[in-house]
Simulated assay, not measured.
Amino acid sequence: MDVLAHVSEATGVPSDLLEGYLPVLTAASATGRLPGRDAVEALRALGKAAAERGVPMRSLAEACLLASELAAGPVETPLIGAARRALGAYFDGYEEAQQHALRQEEQARREFIDDLLQGRADRLAERAEHFGLRFAQAYVVAVAKDAEPIGEGDPIVRRIEQALIGRFGSHNILVAARDGLLVCVAPGTLAAATGEFTHHVRASLTGGWRVGIGRPHRGPGGVVTSFREAGDAIGLGERLGLRPQVLKAADLLVFPVLLRDREAIEDLVTTVLGPLLGARGGAEPLLETLEAVFAAQSNQTAAARKLGISTRAVTYRLERIRRLTGFSPDDPTQRFTLETAVLGARLLGWPPGATP
């Protein structure tokens, strides 16, 4: 077996990547001179090819030293062999230190994100600078929820993080798993970040995913607020049966307002919609009709298509609602009262027995 074949078998480095190395050794041994420019350029090209083919630098160095050892004379062989073993020890120590540093960095990153999203302020601003966050500016938090909880070890976390870092830079984006959600923290000025995050979520998760996007807020407390808004947006979407998979907290501000005075909204729902409980078939079909009509901007034909019934049936149901409640969707003021009451009913899980 020739030298190249032996070295390739021992180190796993393809022999064609070493073909330019042995002539350099032979020429140096014969002339005592260092390799010339052409030889160096040829080796540079082989080094680039090795990187492109995924050959580790450690393996390439091991192969070169082994080839030198096999090609050397009896005097040089022990020295090169000792150098090869010593360099291997250097590589071991270096790689061990690198792995330890990576593990420490990842642990520090996880702890920082936990503290950030929980609002724990232990040296938060100082630590934030290490991860590229500047609390003087506003940040937006987007969260994604899948049918199954997303954990820290889920490959999607790293995959989406790398995709976003590749586009926006490592000092602009934080991606992590938290409370079963995939979380993305981005500067409020980086408007494209949440859209890019959603794009990768859509491509990576199952059909049951949802994305919630908080509003931009400043400071560590602002990140916490935006995170909660994003999660609440998903929760509202599920409770209200909203169709969009991407929900922005800014578009849903009316719902926290409604829930802020629970006693008032309960009174509104009971007063306006309570009479529907006595309707034949119960209140639910009539509530669904109102929701469809409101969503279709009072277009009864479109509402009927969505409900899978005739337009005449929609008209009949609306007339029953008017007779029972005294409120008509055709009157602007009464429409607002009805629509608010229907939204409140969904938030409260009304009629009785429904899930809030």
Rank of each mutant, 00 (worst) to 15 (best):
P187V: 08
P216C: 05
L190D: 08
R210D: 08
A192N: 00
I234Q: 01
G214M: 00
T194Q: 12
L236D: 02
G222R: 06
V211N: 02
G221N: 13
I234K: 05
R202D: 13
H217G: 05
T225N: 04
S204H: 09
H200D: 05
A230K: 10
G231V: 03
E196G: 05
D232I: 05
R218S: 10
T206C: 11
A193D: 06
H217Y: 15
L236F: 12
G214A: 07
H200F: 11
L190C: 12
A203M: 14
A193P: 03
G219S: 07
E238Q: 15
R202V: 13
G207W: 11
E196K: 08
V211I: 03
T225A: 14
G235P: 07
I213N: 01
R239G: 08
A192R: 10
L236I: 09
T198R: 10
F227T: 10
P216W: 03
P216V: 00
A233H: 05
A193W: 03
E196Y: 10
R210G: 03
R202K: 14
T198I: 00
L205D: 11
G219R: 07
T194V: 15
T225H: 12
A192E: 15
G237H: 01
P187R: 12
P187I: 08
G214I: 04
G235Q: 09
A192K: 06
R228N: 11
T206A: 14
E196I: 04
R228I: 04
T194W: 04
P216S: 07
G221T: 10
G237N: 08
S204Q: 09
W209M: 00
R210S: 08
V211A: 02
V211H: 01
G235V: 06
L236G: 00
F197C: 08
A192S: 15
G188M: 00
R210H: 11
G231L: 02
V201N: 04
P220W: 04
E196R: 10
T225D: 08
F227R: 04
G231F: 05
G214R: 05
A230G: 10
F227Q: 01
G195R: 15
T206W: 10
R218M: 07
V224C: 08
G237C: 08
R218P: 01
W209R: 04
P187E: 06
G195N: 13
V223Q: 03
G214N: 03
W209P: 00
R239Q: 09
T225R: 15
R202G: 04
P220S: 06
L190N: 10
G207I: 10
G188H: 05
G208A: 14
R210A: 07
E196H: 09
E238A: 12
G219N: 09
P216E: 01
G212H: 02
V201A: 07
S226V: 04
H217F: 14
H199Q: 12
D232N: 13
G222M: 03
F227G: 06
E238C: 07
H199F: 15
I234V: 14
P220F: 02
T206D: 14
P187M: 10
G188Q: 07
